[in-house]
């Protein structure tokens, strides 16, 4: 087995440690940026649903501003956003490199994306359920938690997995800007040194992670759909 790996991916095996560090950095970026984005994404996604016209807490100005801001951020390519907001990043976390410096741009890019995912999941909730909830005397907060969020769990899971996969894509770009991780590893250990096996191995790992996320998502979707 070891012989086989040495043969297939010699340049990965010869420096396993840097591969492992890169992997952990990616995981760290995904985990922290994902966690923070999840909170903001659910919040903004829900606000966009309830404040829109005909929503349970209709408030056109709030909806309008959020909608436009989300669109604005979604049309900026991640690389450009990360560069452009470097000063802001330094203000927030003190540096624009390393894992910590990657988190703010990752969050800023992921939140609008995830908000839209949440928004579209919640919009799929049958308006009849909202009506029933209101007729039963629920407050707007109860309607949000007991109907909108609870009844769209499968959609939220699906949206989360799509977002997570997109987020992993962003982290590889962060890697090029000094955050480390698998993107940086593939670039600096593979591409610049003409070691193709390193690049291929990174692809393999990303494929593995993506498949894993997809399978978890499918499994939980199925479990929560009745």
């Amino acid at each position: 087995m070891l012989d086989l790996l040495n043969l297939l991916i010699p340049n990965v095996m010869s420096n396993l440690n840097s591969m492992w560090i890169a992997f952990l950095q990616t995981i760290q970026m995904v985990f922290f940026a994902g966690l923070i984005s999840a909170i903001f994404g659910v919040f903004f996604g829900t606000v966009m649903v309830v404040t829109r016209q005909g929503g349970i807490m209709e408030c056109k100005p709030v909806w309008w501003v959020l909608d436009k801001v989300v669109n604005l951020f979604r049309c900026i390519p991640f690389l450009i956003m990360a560069i452009a907001m470097a000063p802001v990043t330094r203000m927030i976390v003190g540096t624009s490199i390393h894992v910590i410096g990657a988190i703010p741009p990752l969050v800023v890019a992921t939140v609008p994306f995830f908000s839209r995912q949440i928004e579209s999941s919640l919009l799929e909730v049958d308006p009849g359920l909202i009506e029933a909830s209101q007729a039963m005397g629920d407050s707007p907060m109860q309607t949000i938690f007991r109907v909108y969020l609870k009844e769209s769990i499968p959609g939220i899971i699906r949206g989360s997995s799509i977002t997570l996969i997109a987020l992993i894509g962003y982290t590889t770009i962060s890697g090029m800007l000094g955050a480390g991780g698998l993107g940086d590893y593939a670039l600096n250990h593979g591409y610049f040194r003409y070691k193709d096996d390193v690049t291929l191995f990174v692809i393999f790992i990303l494929l593995l992670i993506t498949t894993l996320i997809q399978s978890f998502s499918d499994f939980f979707c199925k479990k929560t759909t009745h």
Partner: peptide, 11 residues
Amino acid sequence: MIFQHFNLMPS
């Protein structure tokens, strides 16, 4: 209140 399409919570 009851409705034409029942409006039960599917989950």
